[in-house]
Amino acid sequence: IEKFKLLAEKVEEIVAKNARAEIDYSDAPDEFRDPLMDTLMTDPVRLPSGTVMDRSIILRHLLNSPTDPFNRQMLTESMLEPVPELKEQIQAWMREKQSSDH
């Protein structure tokens, strides 16, 4: 029984630690959010139409349809242009958020 109590305490400790580690990014500025999924972008790319999306989301879309989801023009992965300035701004915002939450 004592071992179970210790195990339960350890589990509670881990759960509390994980809860502290989770950071809420739901208040991200609109320009940091993917327009299709409304999630925080981690690897922004510009489509030929000028729309900026997260790379993982547009690549997932391209698996089903080789088109720009906003104007239905033909689109391939090679046409995606990285946006390193925005990526750095997002990373800086995330770092600031992490340091203010801890």
Rank of each mutant, 00 (worst) to 15 (best):
T76D: 06
K87R: 12
T67H: 03
D38R: 01
F4V: 08
K97T: 13
L7H: 10
N18K: 07
P35T: 02
I57T: 15
P84L: 13
S99N: 10
F32L: 06
V83A: 07
K17Y: 07
M53T: 15
A19M: 14
S49G: 05
I90L: 07
L47V: 15
V52D: 02
P48A: 03
K10L: 03
A19R: 13
K17A: 15
T67A: 02
R33K: 12
E13Y: 15
T39R: 01
L40G: 04
Q91D: 12
K3Q: 05
E77M: 06
E81M: 10
A16T: 10
E96H: 05
H61E: 04
M37I: 05
A92H: 10
T67R: 02
E2L: 00
F4M: 06
K17R: 12
K87E: 10
L63F: 00
I14P: 07
K97G: 15
D43Q: 02
M53I: 15
E81Y: 12
M94Q: 12
Q91R: 13
A21D: 14
M94S: 04
P82A: 11
N18S: 11
Q91T: 14
R95N: 06
D68N: 15
W93F: 14
W93Q: 04
R95A: 14
R20A: 13
D101Q: 12
P84S: 13
E13N: 04
T39S: 06
I14A: 05
P69T: 00
E85Q: 10
K97N: 15
L6I: 10
E9M: 05
N64E: 06
V11Q: 11
Q91L: 10
K97Q: 14
L6M: 12
I23F: 14
R72C: 02
A8P: 11
R33S: 05
R20P: 13
F4W: 06
I58V: 04
M53V: 15
F70Y: 15
E85S: 07
S26D: 15
A19P: 10
N18M: 07
Q73D: 05
Q89R: 12
R46I: 07
E2K: 10
L7S: 10
V83L: 14
E22Q: 08
Y25D: 15
K5P: 08
R72S: 01
E77N: 10
M74R: 11
P44R: 00
E9T: 08
I23M: 14
L36P: 01
D34E: 02
D43H: 07
K10H: 07
L86I: 08
R20L: 14
V45L: 02
E2D: 15
L63I: 13
S100L: 05
E96G: 11
D68S: 00
A28D: 09
K3L: 02
A92S: 15
S78G: 13
S49P: 02
P82S: 15
E96P: 05
K3D: 03
E81K: 13
T67P: 00
Q73K: 09
K17I: 07
K97R: 14
D24Q: 11
T76V: 06
P35A: 02
M74Q: 08
D101T: 05
P29Q: 04
V83E: 11
M41S: 00
V83W: 11
H61G: 00
R33I: 05
D24E: 15
D30N: 07
H102Q: 09
D68A: 00
D34G: 00
N18T: 09
K97I: 13
S56A: 09
E13G: 11
E31G: 10
T42F: 09
K3R: 07
V11G: 10
R33W: 04
E2Q: 08
P66H: 08
P35Y: 03
E96M: 02
A92T: 10
L62M: 14
R33T: 05
T42L: 09
Q91Y: 09
A19S: 07
N71Y: 01
D68Y: 00
M53G: 05
S78C: 11
F32C: 01
D24K: 02
I14K: 14
I1T: 08
D38H: 03
D38E: 03
S100D: 15
Q73A: 15
I23T: 13
D68Q: 00
T67Y: 05
L63A: 15
M41K: 01
L63H: 11
R20C: 10
E22D: 09
W93Y: 04
M74V: 10
V11L: 08
D27Q: 12
I14T: 09
L6P: 10
H61Q: 02
N18R: 15
H102Y: 12
P84R: 08
K10T: 12
M41R: 00
E31Q: 11
D24A: 08
A28T: 14
M94N: 08
A92N: 07
D34Y: 01
V83M: 09
D101N: 09
N71T: 15
W93S: 02
I14L: 13
S65T: 04
D43I: 01
V52L: 05
S78H: 03
L86P: 00
R33C: 03
L7I: 09
A8L: 10
A8I: 06
K10N: 12
M94A: 13
I58F: 01
K17Q: 13
D24N: 06
V11F: 02
L80P: 00
D101E: 09
L36W: 01
K10P: 11
S100I: 14
S100H: 05
L62R: 02
V52A: 05
K97D: 11
Q89H: 07
D38N: 04
M74G: 05
A92R: 06
A19V: 11
F70I: 02
L7F: 14
L63P: 04
S26A: 12
R95I: 09
R72F: 04
D34N: 02
T67C: 07
D27V: 05
I90F: 03
T42V: 07
M37F: 01
S99C: 09
T51I: 15
E13S: 12
A92E: 05
L75Q: 00
E77L: 03
P82L: 02
A8S: 14
A92L: 07
V15S: 13
T67L: 02
N71S: 06
R46S: 10
P44L: 00
L62T: 00
K17S: 04
Y25Q: 08
K10S: 15
D27F: 14
E81L: 04
F4C: 10
P29L: 06
P69L: 00
K10G: 11
L80I: 05
D30E: 12
K87N: 10
R46T: 05
P82H: 04
F70L: 01
E12A: 08
A21T: 10
R20S: 14
K5R: 09
S56F: 03
G50V: 00
I23A: 14
E22K: 05
I23L: 13
S78E: 12
P82E: 09
S49C: 04
E2H: 03
D27S: 09
T39I: 07
T76Y: 06
E96V: 11
E31A: 10
N18G: 05
D54N: 05
P69C: 00
M37T: 08
E12N: 03
S99H: 05
E85A: 09
R20Q: 14
I1F: 02
L75M: 04
R46K: 15
A21S: 10
L36Q: 01
K97P: 07
Q73G: 03
